[in-house]
């Protein structure tokens, strides 16, 4: 159920994204929910969809559902459950471990070590001070194998998550292009996306800086460095949920938007969500969650949001 309508401009953008074949499954569900919630929406959708189809060489045709079902008959007998996946995982983990050990042995003597990932793999790196870095796809991370100096310096190209172990008097510094990120002990993600370098902090405190200015980023905040004007600023509403339960998702959202979020049905708290939201409105995020988990949300007043089962 849609409690607060997205505004028309937001809806047009979402619909054209869907028509262009760019919509995620969650967005497609939002659109279908919106379309079916009111007759007026249904009409508006048809008008827009027809206008869009007019610019197509192969316009969409309503499928013949009963014929499509008949075509699938008789259904093939069911397959036996195959439990390959678990073995594959163990094998993969074993292989990864061997590679990690081999790599560790191979690079042990070198001073500066670089971990570079391919375009579709991430890699977990245990740094010499036992801090953990997860290097994102198509990125590289260079670091000294000893960390003997006054600082723990690493150089990042692309994106990485860091969980830094606190070492008194020895700050951990990430160099990402022209920006540096200094921490004492915390977990955060750094991403160089071309025009901006962003740092998302999960716990603790981080300082982003260059020669001229600096920005302090606290837990649950995201700081960014724009390459064009060389300025730092906080980006308040960027969320990356990776298989997180609703309890912690709600906590993050409540904090960022200064709202209180409650669960009328306690089991909702343990449902899990994986999704990215970059500068989306709170209602957009809530709608994605509601459609994905098949739940409803309502505002009891401006500041209090209730989730309940459908």
């Amino acid at each position: 159920m849609v409690n607060r309508a997205l505004n028309m401009i937001e809806m047009d953008a979402l619909l054209s994204k869907y028509f262009s074949g760019e919509a995620t499954p969650e967005e497609a569900m939002i659109i279908d929910d919106w379309r079916m919630s009111k007759e007026e929406n249904e009409r508006e959708f048809s008008a827009l969809w027809n206008a869009w189809n007019a610019t197509s060489a192969k316009p969409h045709q309503q499928p013949d559902v009963p014929a499509a079902w008949q075509q699938m008959q008789p259904l093939a007998p069911r397959q036996k459950v195959k439990r390959i996946s678990r073995f594959t995982w163990i094998a993969a983990a074993g292989l990864l471990f061997c590679i990690a050990v081999a790599a560790a042995l191979l690079f042990q003597k070198e001073d500066l070590k670089t971990v570079a990932t391919t375009n579709n793999k991430t890699e977990k790196v245990i740094l010499p001070d036992s801090s953990v870095a997860i290097v994102g796809a198509g990125s590289s991370l260079s670091y000294s194998t000893s960390f003997t100096g006054k600082e723990r310096n690493v150089i990042l190209k692309g994106e990485a998550f860091f969980d830094v172990r606190p070492v008194a008097g020895k700050p951990f510094i990430v160099k990402a292009g022209l920006a540096k990120i200094k921490v004492l002990g915390t977990s955060f993600t750094v991403a160089d996306t071309g025009s901006v370098i962003t740092t998302r902090v999960y716990s603790g405190k981080v300082i982003m800086y260059n020669d001229k200015e600096s920005l302090t980023i606290l837990s649950e905040q995201t700081g960014s460095f724009r390459k064009d004007n060389q300025h730092f600023s906080l980006v308040p509403f960027v969320f990356h949920f990776e298989d997180e339960d609703m309890k912690s998702v709600a906590a993050s959202l409540a904090k960022a938007y200064h709202k209180k979020i409650f669960f009328k049905d306690p089991e909702i708290a343990s449902l899990r969500i994986s999704s990215n939201f970059d500068n989306k409105s709170l209602d957009y995020i809530l709608q994605v969650i509601a459609s994905t988990l098949n739940v409803n949300y309502t505002y009891s007043n401006e500041d209090e949001i209730y989730f309940e089962k459908n």
Binding site: I9, E10, D12, L15, S16, K17, A54
Partner: peptide, 13 residues
């Protein structure tokens, strides 16, 4: 891009 595509769709319609 998203916003401009939305605008184009609205004008077409």
């Amino acid at each position: 891009v998203e916003a401009q595509m939305g605008k184009a769709l609205r004008i077409l319609r």
